[in-house]
């Protein structure tokens, strides 16, 4: 790394700073300005609406459930993909990235095709008398789907870097597989895992298109925070929409700062 000397580097830096400021910083500031346009009192008042609180509560529940599921299975998948060799490993490895690029609308639509009235599992759904499509379970499926890659993608490189040897060392010292996992593997990947969990959480809380399609956005029943914003815009309750958006954005920043700290931390331990 070096000090920028001459006009070319300075110009390059200038362009980069300006681009990021206009593209990212300006809109962020705009929404804060919009939310507080009629003062802080109105801002807090609009958040204190039971409908808003219910929406946040549902968002949080879905996000936590998705985090739990994807942490458990994501760690397993990452370990298997790194430590084991088997036919089709490359295929599954590439498959993991798919939720990054599948449109959330299609994700929601998948749930309907599987669990809707004419879905593949319609008889099963009917027999067990559970509602999945247009209900919270369907929204959970969508949330798990869209946030699936994060834990896997963060844990895999860490596992690869640590290598097989610490686990082998534990085995030669007599530790069972479970003890090895708890005492050796887990502590090794904890920062990477936490990083993945943060991303999962942020992604899950912000999910919109998928839960819109899979849940149907029924007020008080399947309305998450993002869905509330969408509904509020429709009803021209701009301040309320902005306020919820600001809270979500603030949460995102918190996660972001947390991740930055984590990253520093992992860099130091390595």
């Amino acid at each position: 790394m070096r000090e920028p000397k001459g006009w070319v580097p300075k110009l390059l830096i200038g362009i980069a700073v300006l681009y990021l400021a206009v593209l990212i910083l300006l809109p962020v500031l705009a929404i804060f300005q919009g939310a507080f346009a009629q003062g802080a009192a109105v801002f807090f008042e609009s958040l204190n609406d039971p409908q808003v609180i219910a929406a946040f509560w549902l968002s949080i529940q879905l996000a936590i459930a998705a985090v739990v599921i994807n942490t458990i299975f994501g760690t397993t998948v990452a370990w298997v993909l790194v430590r084991q060799e088997f036919f089709g490993r490359a295929f599954f490895n590439a498959l993991v990235d798919l939720p990054f690029v599948v449109s959330p609308v299609i994700t929601g639509y998948m749930v309907i095709l599987l669990f809707g009235r004419q879905g593949w599992f319609a008889p099963l759904v009917k027999a067990t008398d559970t509602q999945i499509a247009f209900a919270v379970p369907g929204m959970l499926l969508v949330t798990v789907f869209v946030s699936l890659p994060f834990v896997i993608r963060e844990v895999m490189p860490v596992l690869r870097e640590i290598g097989h040897e610490p686990e082998q060392a534990a085995h030669t010292l007599g530790a069972s597989s479970w003890r090895t996992f708890v005492r050796v593997t887990m502590p090794g990947i904890r920062w990477g895992l936490l990083y993945g969990i943060s991303l999962t959480l942020a992604r899950a809380l912000g999910e919109f298109g998928g839960v819109l399609v899979a849940g149907g956005a029924v007020t008080g029943k399947t309305e998450t925070a993002t869905l509330y914003i969408f509904a509020a815009l429709d009803e021209r309750q701009y301040i309320s929409a902005y306020a919820v958006a600001v809270v979500l954005a603030l949460f995102s920043f918190t996660v972001l700062i947390g991740m930055e700290i984590l990253r520093k931390r992992t860099e130091i331990t390595q």
């Binding site: 809109p27 929404i31 942020a202 919109f208 298109g209 969408f230 929409a241 958006a245 979500l248 954005a249």
Partner: peptide, 11 residues
């Protein structure tokens, strides 16, 4: 990456 896309649109 962190901000919900809906919020992006709103911004």
């Amino acid at each position: 990456f962190a901000i919900p896309t809906l919020v992006t649109g709103l911004m």
